[in-house]
Design a protein around this nucleic acid. Sequence first.
DNA 1: TATTGTTATACTCTATAACTATA
DNA 2: TATAGTTATAGAGTATAACAATA
Lengths: 166, 166
Amino acid sequence: MPRTAPDPQPLPMPGDEAIDFGPLAGSLGFLLRLSQLQSFANFFHEMDGFNVRPGEISVLMLMAQNPGVRQGVLARALHIKRAHMTKMIRAMETAGIVTRTVPEDDRRSVELWLTDKGRKRLMAMQQPFLSHETRNTTGLTDAEEAQLKALLRKYIGLDSQGPKES
Amino acid sequence: MPRTAPDPQPLPMPGDEAIDFGPLAGSLGFLLRLSQLQSFANFFHEMDGFNVRPGEISVLMLMAQNPGVRQGVLARALHIKRAHMTKMIRAMETAGIVTRTVPEDDRRSVELWLTDKGRKRLMAMQQPFLSHETRNTTGLTDAEEAQLKALLRKYIGLDSQGPKES
DNA sequence: TATTGTTATACTCTATAACTATA
DNA sequence: TATAGTTATAGAGTATAACAATA
């Protein structure tokens, strides 16, 4: 059976029984965990039919943005273990959406390139992916969502990517 | 070997090679994923020696806050599958930190209660857990962290717990 | 019929170590 | 010696379905 996407899941409990989260509601880790579950549920709902997982689309996007990126650099950037990255890339190679080359200056490493097929697949997915990202399935306003992203970027030290107003 | 906690991992890449995250840096799902990894790394660093996982401490805290909570309610609140919750609770029962009772009004269900041992374990863990949550290992100010939590609570619809100013 | 908890199975992701080939 | 990628293995976490007891 081809993976049925779960319903968008409003996440507030069914009328059943209430529960008191207590100090847990103030735990950043707990909030991040539930938020990621919410976000992934939205992802699978929006990307249903593409048979894609969050990990794959992030790899595709980084390969598109950084042609010839080395496999280990990609793994570190996404916090995917090298052993796992090997399997992911191998599967993509088999699927014909990525090619691997060995550079002259360091013949231990592997450079990754999207094929035309890979680029097409990414182009087809990126639109619903980005729309899923911006469409407010929850109660956040656009400003709140932007602020949330900015805070998360700062939390993980990713502000070097942020827009600058020099 | 007793599980060595990883170093706090500053998360900004080692001086190695830079990578352009492109539109991925604007993806809420991606930011949430990296943020959770960061948060969990902090968790394991801070809780090293307690041999506790994020899932267990959240279960302990909710059982303490909601004595006699039914197992299924707990599972739904934490988005843990019932099958998985069964295994977790069984392990805790074996460890002597939780007892299970069958209520009269619905003999299908199971009510959960922390034992004294469970309460002690939670008390011992809660202090470093909450300090890990508030200690700013990253660049967020206290105000920013509070705002981040508020936005996440709104994102997942958990504001019913929030303070109200009637 | 539906629900609660249980059991069993499988799959994904992760963690670790050992191995090679290069450096 | 150290590093990049690979291979193999084991373990968590998760998803699913089938089942018994109860509603």
